[in-house]
Amino acid sequence: MAANTIFFMIFSLVAIISGFVMITRRHPLSAALSLVVTFISLAGLYGLLAAKLLFIIQILVYAGAIMTLVIFSIMLLNVQEEDLPAEERIIERVSITTLILLPMIYIIGRSFTVIKDGQFPEVSQDFGTIHSVGMFLFTTYSFPFEVISILLLISLLGVVVLAKRRI
């Protein structure tokens, strides 16, 4: 077995397990920390694809910035065990959700049988490197890129205006 396959298995196993831990933990902080582990193992998967920029962005933005903010707000509120809402009738809820999601399981199961090995082309050499992402952002997708940056600027200003308003 190639080293790549072993690393792929390790990263995906860690991602799945920590994702499961994230939805089963009761305390929000434990959930958030397991989400960090999921993000870092996803970054590892990008790293296996030699997508250096995606790997870095995944760690810098998701694990580094966004999750730090999430954990920061959890800590700032200092949620205690008794503050958490009581989770009643957990078995009924889980079983109803499973029933709703059953068609999804069928689709996932079919994808295993339909898709065979070698049907996907390999990713190109410069997938997710800084050069290719930059070329995409400033040529093909330059208009959506600018629109998104203006949108983010507006939301940033909106937050400042709302937070600074004298009530």
Partner: peptide
């Protein structure tokens, strides 16, 4: 070839 970015990404883990 993206060393500075990687540098900042790794050091941002310290905050956690």
């Amino acid at each position: 070839n993206v060393a500075i970015f990687l540098f900042l990404a790794i050091s941002s883990i310290t905050t956690l």
